[in-house]
Design a protein around this nucleic acid. Structure first.
Ligand SMILES: [Mn+2]
Ligand SMILES: [Mn+2]
Ligand SMILES: [Mn+2]
Ligand SMILES: [Mn+2]
Lengths: 224, 224
DNA sequence: TATAATTTTTAGGTTAACCTAAAATTATAT
DNA sequence: ATATAATTTTAGGTTAACCTAAAAATTATA
């Protein structure tokens, strides 16, 4: 099984993987992929047909797509590379966490398993990337994670720790940095506002701030 | 002047740059480029027309191509990235010098000036890559080099030091490694055989070996 | 200098990955 | 259930980068 996939093909597989992950649904709609990859549904239809012929995805016309075992394995390896490179950029080259996604989108397509493994070794086999996303190993196994919930699930008075940011959006990451929120930040939910689904949190330094629904949706925590 | 060139376009510019360097001629033949890029002359003709319209090369039909100032600057930056990445792979990830060219062919096309500069900084702004090739800086300036000559110019009895290997050929590099020749290796030319233009050299450990014309052509040295 | 050989360009085709617009299918709402 | 809306696929086109084969230009040779 030596596939030699184009960057485009890899991106489609990765997108489908991520959408399965995010939507917790096994059948992914054509339009969802188009949206995610900023392309048109017709282009997705075409590519889906091709990947389907290569048996990397399985799809029923008009119904949706899912990854085959091989397709999944490839997607996971692309994700592995993406996250290892992001880690490299932040840990070794001192990039900010909001600068690395775009570059990793390019680096994730470099073809050399040896390079990937040596990079991982060089980084000390990191288990999580700068945004708290788990990094699968060479065999595609993800590290065990603590029980992660979204910040909106946290009740008033509860203490939690940020473990993951659910988006690569640069502006979100800059916002978080400016407000002293990062991976590992400990917070307390001090108030919940039903009006707009915002919440007030308190940081270790006692400073409080109100987070919008849109921000909250992208902050994942573990309870402390 | 913000060019957004394809990998292919970058490879053509780099090829022309290298051929100008190697042949010491300012006009580069279409067939030479085709050969270098393992493509066909007709494809080169097409691409030359395109790069010419972008004013990255100048060419007269049937006469040959040369780089414009902009084209040269871009080629140099691609070469900078190639050599920095090769240095990274050898110095930080412990690759062998014969393994890195292929991977650097991919990495050289990653688009991020900030990444390139941070990588250079991370490596301590190296002046030469693992094969002894000079690494231009951000402005495209190459480091000053000692007076470099080809090994075939060395006379019987003279001492020299290997400073550069003039080819990325994997088998050549493996051959050199196996015979304890690398950048910095000190040698003495003990005999010259006119029959096949081979020479016998002596290493520091007194071991001698005979190098073929083909090998010699790719070893550049400075006299000691 | 005329002819032959070589080099380069042009003509015409292919493939991958896009696109818009139209047709087909499925979902939703009266 | 049927009409309408939304989704998905197909049809047909474009562009970049390659290709082969033929034509044109240049260079070498007799
Ligand atoms: Mn990312
Ligand atoms: Mn990508
Ligand atoms: Mn190289
Ligand atoms: Mn290249």
């Amino acid at each position: 099984m030596k596939y030699n996939l184009s960057q485009s093909e890899e991106n489609y597989l990765k997108s489908i993987y991520n959408l399965i992950d995010k939507t917790k649904s096994s059948l992914i709609n054509t339009n969802l992929i188009a949206d995610d990859l900023k392309t048109k549904a017709s282009s997705v239809s075409e590519m889906i047909k091709k990947l389907s012929e290569k048996e990397l995805i399985e799809y029923k016309k008009y119904k949706g797509s899912q990854l085959t075992e091989n397709g999944n394995a490839i997607a996971v390896q692309v994700i592995r590379k993406h996250r290892l490179w992001e880690t490299f950029l932040v840990e070794k080259l001192n990039f900010e966490w909001d600068e690395v996604h775009e570059i990793a989108e390019q680096l994730e397509h470099i073809k050399s398993i040896k390079l990937t493994n040596k990079l991982s070794e060089f980084l000390g086999h990191p288990k999580f990337d700068p945004h708290g996303d788990p990094i699968p190993n060479e065999k595609g196994i993800f590290p065990k994670q603590h029980f992660v919930i979204n910040l909106k699930q946290v009740k008033q008075g509860q203490f939690a720790e940020v473990v993951n940011i659910g988006s690569d959006n640069k502006n979100l990451l800059i916002f978080l940095t400016k407000n002293n929120i990062g991976i590992g930040t400990k917070i307390k939910c001090v108030d919940i506002y039903d009006f707009d689904d915002s919440i007030k949190i308190e940081l270790m330094d006692k400073r409080t701030l109100i987070l919008s629904k849109k921000v909250i949706k992208n902050i994942n925590v573990k309870l402390n």
